[in-house]
Design a protein around this nucleic acid. Sequence first.
DNA 1: TTGAAAGCGCTAACAC
DNA 2: GTGTTAGCGCTTTCAA
Lengths: 347, 347
Amino acid sequence: MAITIKDVAQLANVAPSTVSRVIANNPRISEKTKVRVRKAMTKLGYHPNFIARSLANQSTRIIGLVMPSSSNDYYQNPFFPTILQGLSEGAQENHYSLLLSTGKTEDEIYEGVVNMVQGGMVDGIILMYSRMNDHILTYLRERDFPFVIIGKPYDYIEEITYVDNDNVLAAEQATDYLIKLGHERVGFIGGDESLMMTIDRLSGYERALERAGIDRRMEYTLHEDFLHEGGQAAAKRLLSIDEPPTALVVSDDLMALGIVHSLREMGVRTPEEMSIVSFNNVLFSELSLPALTSVDINIFDLGYQAAKGIIHMLQTGDAPAGTIIPHHFVERHSCRSIKQGAMAMTY
Amino acid sequence: MAITIKDVAQLANVAPSTVSRVIANNPRISEKTKVRVRKAMTKLGYHPNFIARSLANQSTRIIGLVMPSSSNDYYQNPFFPTILQGLSEGAQENHYSLLLSTGKTEDEIYEGVVNMVQGGMVDGIILMYSRMNDHILTYLRERDFPFVIIGKPYDYIEEITYVDNDNVLAAEQATDYLIKLGHERVGFIGGDESLMMTIDRLSGYERALERAGIDRRMEYTLHEDFLHEGGQAAAKRLLSIDEPPTALVVSDDLMALGIVHSLREMGVRTPEEMSIVSFNNVLFSELSLPALTSVDINIFDLGYQAAKGIIHMLQTGDAPAGTIIPHHFVERHSCRSIKQGAMAMTY
DNA sequence: TTGAAAGCGCTAACAC
DNA sequence: GTGTTAGCGCTTTCAA
């Protein structure tokens, strides 16, 4: 059995409660006894017991992290470690810890969250994704349990604290960029259709087309899970259209890579015959061939601000609000101009 | 305040201890009262409090995960989410939770681990990396705290439970593959030199050269952090040698990508002028141009077995042992034969 | 400024 | 089979 507050109290000749106060640095304890107690603590190698403290305080200083189900490819994305890093840094700065949800299926994850929450293991929750009609979100709302969500809430947006990019604007700008390059046949390749990220990017894409007076063609919009199939299916479908697009807005770098790859296998080169703008700007976007023009969404900040946000909520009980993380466009070599008399590539 | 065991006891007309026994499914309780108590539980919406249980049991069913410091590029690797997935699945299957270490610097992480361990937050620890002279490992050993390490222990290998690949063999095979292709000037690009993974792969590389009777040239071995610089520095140094290598064993796919990229910028094509074998076989290895020939080390299993391992230790108190996860070679298009009269590429 | 004592919610040894 | 009781290690009234 480890050293407890009692052992320290005994050695320092004070009551356990006094030791407790010294730990909390209670100002009503005299400096003299503080010093004495602290000396006893180091002498014994005392370390406070988190569990006992949590039980007494009804608070664990632990934040639960809910990942998307691991059957979901989203999880596989290099996007994740970076978000985690942000979360980790935000938590660390305020002496909070992070507890991971586990579970493959949605149901398993849901059950895990219920355990975390009702079991009193966590003080708050961060949802690392946002999708429509999410059970977990509903549950959290119903219980009025503190949480923040990374991504835009599907509904009750005024009542939920979230951290997100302006994905509509970002996609609009990306699409606009292609249109300015002279492309009129621009397609959109999204990920999971229930993800708010996908939904927003799609509507940004639509908005740009509309503003440019370009009719949207439904066959130019594809939603699939490309990580596994390497974009094979998408590439095929795209090329089987009688007037295939000349440019693509792709909701994720890894997907973009898959599409570039499949296109290449079918003899279509990027950017010469297909221009591509993607999202996230993960590490390898720069290293791939061609280097991907990508929208940097500041993934790290997404995590960092989410951590800050939930901690702020827990400490102040403040009203919810949305935080928008700025994005920026990173121009590389995956797009080319098809304007009359323009340069061939957009270096 | 939430529903407690007492509320349930009252409603079911039994003592709190009986409720506790029902939760534990103690066989000495009659089916009749079990049913009655369970009914009361669902009626009240009772959910056991983890913290209280942990305090009474002196066990949390939480496993602490120690990541490398986030200043470390290793963290950035797509490798990580996959390990996490494995850990998560292994933990979930046994109803364990995962607590993440936070902290940027080594010292912060160390402190975090001490808090986890001495604070009684975790029953065991998984170190997600293995390096020489690691403080944290020393600490854990000194306290005799249960832990498993992903990677080969630097010392006391007999006394430590670990999960690892046979990196020596893997690197030997990779090098051998290049030698068989006719390469005699084979270089090695490793990551962090203190990582056991790097050390083992380097010695596998050396072994293959030795067996083939090829003298090792020190200028062919480079250790750097290529993720940030995109391999620029490495590529330059490699090409500045009077007799540059014709093939490279690279300790990581992302690094390999960086090198391919930099080489290309300097006018050196892969695989025509430089053959490359790398490690890990992460998702994009297949999608890059050229598709990378890579050693698949079964990252998921590394995590999965580590989780199983620590849980086994906790439940049985069993003696430590090493688990070796098999690897396999995935031949793609980043190497070519330079043998007389051989085919140009190894499709 | 400090101590005594109750209690956080649960488990387990000991009774009956 | 079930109840009683004493903790697990800490915080926090309340009293002094």
